[in-house]
Design a protein around this nucleic acid. Structure first.
Length: 428
RNA sequence: GGAGAGGUGGCUGAGCGGCUGAAAGCGACGGUUUGCUAAACCGUUGAACGGUUUAUAACCGUUCCCCGGGUUCGAAUCCCGGCCUCUCCGCCA
């Protein structure tokens, strides 16, 4: 994973204005002019050094056949060349780091159909699906339900592990596993290849997927081992084929991965403190696609992974809406992102439960993830990913929406096979 | 944790300091043969960057045999550091 280029420098040269625009609407700092200036200077120096090397090589070839006196001469002139070379090399070495770090800041250009906006308040709703339930009694929130039905124990989680920690207990744990198994099976039926990935990964995997630099504060890290704890299976699964060259015929590769996810949630003190909405550890079923370098195909696959997740929510009978995430809320590498927000009565609003991202070759470049196309040319892949289900966050919606006046919770039908046929969650 | 081995092209695997961008095999691609398939035979087959050019074609140049330094007129080949992988022993599950 040596290739740390965000976007191809040639592309940047030719699309400087678009990138400036992207940096502006994404609110990501990036000095394109400075980058191009450095780039031009570097190209010039590299040409000079190349000429010197040509001379050196020629001299080196002569030397083995030269007479002793000639050898002396050649070696002397070589010494001069080497001095000049060293000079230029020093200049190059001085400029390179600045160039590299500027290059790393270059954002991916958003798709044309992404709304321009400053932050998540300007995301645009694409559609709403499912009717919001009207209660004819006063509904409880998931924390109260969890307590009453012994599904959830936050205080003891906090006792052992600090804020944003919890236990799922009894039927709560069973419901959690049921949701996950349902989601995995759903995706496997749709032809996705199941994976259970390592979640403690090397730094270059985090860099390759775009979480570093920038996400240092969000990720747990094992300092002794210099390894990072990934916040999502997207990280190891997208990096699965890094540094490899795949066959075009094998693409797209579609994966469904289940993992526990760890997030520090630094800088969110006071945000979403109630319940199990924002927590340090959760399980997530994730879908990841590695495809051809073909924008049209990526667009279609993006719709496909979105449809998969909508299928899950519909099967669970949860009302949701699909958001077209605006430029200001897009990550550096994302071309376009759909968020799915599921209705959560206690929040009296939709809460984000899914996030479907399209990167084109942004991650693949950093991961050195390539394939050979029909002409034998090596191309960078395209990558995409989306949540299938993240639990326990989704349990908020399930518990609150499926609660009954008597304080019990009905088990959604599709989950019952995974709960030994249980139809209702009662206190036990 | 202790001791050792090693990192070469899509893969496996050779490689006296100049003739090695790299043997050989496999794979892939093109062709011959063939009722079809298979087999056999012949040929082609690394990447990035820069220049010439209408050209992602051809040609020329430079760099690249894990990364970074060093020795040398010259390094895949010698030396040092780093990263990574593997084996044995110990420990643990």
């Amino acid at each position: 994973m040596r290739c740390m280029v965000m976007l191809d420098i040639k592309f940047i040269r030719e699309n400087a204005e678009k990138i400036k625009w992207a940096s502006q609407v994404k609110k990501i700092e990036c000095d394109v002019d400075k980058l191009l200036e450095l780039d031009a200077a570097l190209v010039k120096l590299r040409q000079e050094i190349q000429n010197i090397q040509t001379e050196k090589n020629a001299a080196g070839k002569k030397i083995s056949k030269a007479s002793p006196e000639e050898k002396k001469q050649i070696i002397e002139s070589m010494a001069q060349l080497k001095n000049r070379e060293k000079d230029i090399q020093t200049q190059l070495d001085e400029m390179e780091p600045a160039y590299q770090s500027l290059l790393l800041q270059v954002p991916q250009i958003p798709s044309e159909d992404v709304p321009v906006g400053k932050d998540d308040t300007e995301n645009v709703e694409i559609r709403k699906v499912g009717a919001i339930r009207e209660f004819d009694f006063t509904p409880l929130d998931h924390v109260e339900l969890g307590q009453k039905l012994n599904l959830l124990d936050i205080p003891r989680g906090v006792k052992l592990a600090g804020a944003r920690s919890y236990f799922l207990t009894g039927n709560g744990a069973l419901l959690h596993w049921a949701v996950i198994r349902f989601a995995v099976d759903f995706m496997v039926k749709r032809g996705y290849f199941p994976m259970y990935p390592p979640m403690i990964v090397r730094e270059q995997v985090m860099r390759g997927t775009g979480y570093l630099p920038g996400g240092e504060e969000q990720a747990y890290m094992c300092e002794r081992d210099n390894l990072y704890v990934a916040g999502t299976a997207e990280v190891p699964v997208t990096a699965y084929f890094s540094d490899e060259i795949l066959n075009q015929a094998d693409l797209p590769k579609k994966f469904v991965a289940l993992s526990t996810c760890f997030r520090r949630e630094a800088g969110t003190y006071g945000k979403d403190t109630a319940g199990i909405y924002r927590i340090h550890q959760f399980d997530k079923v994730e879908q990841v696609i590695v495809g051809r370098n073909d924008e049209q195909q990526s667009i279609e696959l993006h719709e496909e992974i979105l449809a998969n997740s909508e299928g899950i929510l519909q099967a669970l009978g949860l009302p949701y809406r699909v958001m077209n995430v605006c430029t200001g809320d897009l990550g550096r590498g994302q071309v376009k992102k759909y968020d799915i927000e599921t209705w959560m009565p206690s929040r009296n609003s939709y809460g984000e439960t899914h996030s479907a991202s399209r990167f084109y070759d942004f991650q693949a470049r950093r991961l050195n993830l390539r394939y050979r196309d029909e002409n034998g040319k090596i191309q960078f892949c395209h990558t995409l990913n989306n949540t299938v289900i993240a639990s326990p966050r989704v349990l908020i919606a399930i518990l609150e929406l499926y609660q009954n006046a008597d304080g019990t919770v009905t088990v959604p039908e599709v989950l019952r096979p995974y709960m030994g046929g249980m139809e209702t969650l009662k206190r036990r």
